[in-house]
């Protein structure tokens, strides 16, 4: 009897695990295909072999410059930012058990942006200072939202989201004010922080993002099991032996740093952090960790949207416009659904 039960459970898990592996592999392949497309497509399209030769250092007239100086940094920025946004968004959404509880929606990205814009326009600070300030501002915003939504005895996620949306509006007003006050020549740098774009990504800007992802993505992936326990709520998590405060802080700090550093390079690419988690979860199911699939969905969203923005229309649109068009209807749909369920 028991052996039958075990076999039945093993079989069920194997089916779900196979689905996870197949879907994740497809997402990975799709990401690679999009990376290649980012390198091959442009004003002039180059075949794969030319791109590869250019990448390995061979000098080919025209190709080398376009691929190595323009397309490669653009592709890498999109790849890493998409991955960072996807994983970080998934972390917040799972931990707070709500797709709306997302750095893009509850003002954390705006907090980072406001600090960055302040440093650029008022302090004329260096890039390093700007990045550090944006990470700290992101964390401070998180803490403020958390404290405000915690009215003494009860903590409600619905309240956290509403307060976050309010804080977001306030911070966006601060950003607008700073921009009005700023010098004309600062505006191009400022704009980077406000709208998501891969235009003008440069190789020498990428190392901080590489380091961030190499350090913090593994932390989040390793804590996947802890995250799935946190999802059961404070009481269950505590009685299962999770140190809820430490785990939550580790996850939040990792996610906010990844989001802030990625934002400092590509700007807040609208809704990527918001869409990736739910799409990934729908694709792989709920039983296994969604961090890696969510990161890959983020990559696909960013790269595909950038390609669409570059080539699908008469004028070229930055990637943030395309993801914005994709994400806004989903946001409205979620708000309506949550309102019906009485979650807001």
């Amino acid at each position: 009897m028991t052996t039958n039960t075990i076999a039945y459970i093993i079989e069920g898990r194997r089916v779900r695990q196979r689905r996870w592996i197949v879907v994740t592999s497809i997402l990975a392949v799709l990401s690679v295909v999009l990376c290649c497309a980012m390198l091959m497509l442009g004003n002039k399209n180059y075949p794969v072999q030319d791109v590869l030769r250019a990448l390995t250092g061979e000098k080919i007239k025209g190709v080398s410059f376009a691929v190595n100086t323009i397309r490669l940094p653009r592709m890498l920025a999109g790849l890493m930012a998409g991955f960072a946004f996807g994983i970080a968004g998934h972390t917040f959404q799972t931990m707070l058990r709500n797709p709306l509880a997302n750095p893009n929606v509850i003002g954390i990205t705006s907090g980072s942006g406001a600090a960055a814009v302040f440093c650029i326009t008022m302090l004329h600070a260096s890039d390093t200072v700007i990045s550090i300030a944006s990470v700290i501002a992101g964390l401070v915003t998180t803490i403020i939202i958390y404290l405000l939504s915690n009215n003494g005895r009860s903590f409600s996620i619905g309240r956290l989201i509403l307060i976050g949306i309010g804080i977001q509006a306030m911070l966006d007003a601060v950003i607008s004010y700073l921009m009005l006050k700023s010098a004309q020549y600062d505006l191009p740098v400022v704009m980077r922080w406000l709208s998501g774009s891969l235009n003008g990504s440069k190789m020498n800007e990428l190392p901080p993002l590489v380091i961030t992802i190499v350090i913090f993505a593994p932390i989040i992936i390793m804590l996947g099991k802890h995250l799935s326990i946190l999802e059961l709520g404070e009481q269950s998590a505590t009685s299962l032996g999770v140190n809820t405060n430490k785990t939550r802080i580790a996850l939040i700090v990792s996610a906010v740093i990844m989001i802030s550093i990625a934002t400092s390079i590509t700007g807040p690419i609208a809704f990527v952090a918001f869409l990736s988690g739910p799409i990934a979860k729908r694709l792989v199911g709920a039983g296994f960790s969604g961090a890696i699939p969510a990161g890959l969905v983020g990559v696909i969203l960013v790269l595909a949207s950038d390609l669409i923005g570059q080539f699908a229309f008469e004028t070229r649109f930055p990637v943030g416009i395309i993801t914005g068009i994709l994400g806004a209807p989903y946001l409205i749909y979620l708000l309506i659904r949550m309102n019906r369920k009485g979650d807001l």
Partner: peptide
């Protein structure tokens, strides 16, 4: 401990 109102994660199977 089984809490009074445990939180159900969406879309998860019973065995998981």
């Amino acid at each position: 401990l089984l809490p009074q109102s445990p939180i159900v994660p969406e879309g998860i199977s019973v065995a998981d």
